[in-house]
Design a protein around this nucleic acid. Structure first.
Lengths: 247, 247
DNA sequence: GATCAGTTTTGGTATGATCAAAACTCAATA
DNA sequence: TATTGAGTTTTGATCATACCAAAACTGATC
């Protein structure tokens, strides 16, 4: 590929092959949104007004707005004024949501995604074991107790399960990780909700969580890693059962 | 928030607030692209033809195509026929590129992204130390040697540096990881290329790479982790110097 | 068979019109 | 005074049409 393109350093694809008017307008608004001139939550001006102030046709305006909408910079319900949405890692993830879920059609894609989740959670568990704060451990404990209390309530258990994991993603204090967790939930949920959830299974999962928590409490990264791997490996087997059953 | 929305299980936001005609068309094409009825690389039919076959106005067709383009399902150079592009994790990442780079305006965002990179590479190094194949280690060695040979050539060193890391991302055999690596490069490059690169610095980086390689060779995950952390910590200090200098 | 001028096709943009839903106005009402 | 609801205006969604310039196509030419 571009292995040898060392010398034409700018050759990626920045060739501005003639720009569309709508692109310019798009960038204009993009800038306004970043700079805050268009505040979060504020509606865009009416199309006809934009037409006037920018001296372009309505076609162009609509295309620009549509682009903003597709990129997640504005939220556009039909017939309503598009509303400005300041971008975040979350909105970025939303934007690719559709495409990604297409990639999860085959079990190969799901497996690849799941493997990265294992990677992340193993890392998080190790880190937690090494340097979790007192508050962090406390949050984890709280989540664990909520989890236990919900063993007999399928719906509630599902949520407390997610919450336990989310606490893990929250502990390092990196908001990107929280977004990533949300993405995992969103993308893997379809496979997850398909499987029958029995109280017995809930109990097993709760025990896995407990093992993770204990390892962290004992400041034992190896045990924490092992516990996470076991937990997720179980989960994967469940998911895989579903996947291979449906293909 | 929706912490308590346990009972209205479908309540995320599936309120189908009346759909646009363009949305339908978009989904139509989306399906055709997934199913392969529109093959990768194939151009879309002319707009006027679509108008005829779907019985909608050209406006709608254009909006649908624009949406496809924004989602990365087709590649649309101005004045050229849009070309179908089968989605991959790479294209997904491209799609969010703009938004993400906006999030990297402040050093906070960059730091968060960089931290996840540390996470990934620490994990990769540990895994490599534990279970790298003979071929994997060999690839790493090759990359290392290329890296050394390029110490006096800034441009080339930059590329061999990247390549060394890429090999690490390749070793687990998960294509998603490779996409992630590409994303890191793309997003962090702007900060990276700003810093002055001296042969002395190149040498230090090469030595860091060597340390990582050796730890993997010795099957010592702890050392591998430590080496990666040190390497990336150095890199971050450099980046941070740039960031704090420019704000 | 390669090349190039001429024609047709097609994407980009502009205009204006129509329709239904949303937003707004304001008087009647409690 | 606050509220409500009918009536009016605004506005997003869609369509039809037109024009231009660049791309794609066609043939004749060498």
């Amino acid at each position: 590929m571009s292995e040898l393109s060392i010398f034409k350093s700018e050759a990626d694809d920045p060739v501005v092959h003639g720009h569309r008017a709508a692109d310019d307008l798009f960038r204009e608004f993009e800038k306004m949104i970043i700079s805050g001139k268009l505040a979060d939550g504020e509606p865009l001006p009416p199309e006809r007004e934009i037409v006037e102030s920018f001296g372009v046709s309505r076609t162009v305006v609509r295309e620009a707005i549509l682009a903003l909408s597709n990129k997640g910079l504005v939220e556009a319900k039909p017939r309503y004024r598009p509303v400005v949405r300041k971008p975040s890692f979350d909105t970025a993830i939303d934007t690719v949501g559709n495409v990604v879920s297409m990639l999860l059609e085959d079990s190969e894609g799901v497996k690849n995604l799941f493997d990265t989740r294992v990677m992340v959670e193993v890392y998080l568990a190790r880190q937690a074991a090494l340097e979790a704060t007192r508050e962090g451990v406390q949050s984890l404990k709280d989540a664990l107790e909520e989890n236990e209390a919900a063993i007999d309530n399928m719906e509630l258990f599902f949520h407390t399960d997610i919450k336990f994991h989310r606490v893990m993603y929250t502990m390092p204090g990196n908001p990107l990780l929280v977004s990533i967790h949300k993405a995992y939930i969103t993308w893997l949920k379809p496979n997850w909700t398909k499987m029958p959830s029995l109280p017995a299974r809930n109990r097993l999962n709760f025990e896995s969580h407990t093992a993770i928590y204990n390892a962290i409490l004992m400041r034992d990264p190896e045990k924490a890693e092992e516990a996470v791997r076991k937990h997720l490996s179980d989960a994967w087997q469940q998911i895989n059962k579903i996947l291979s059953g449906s293909h």
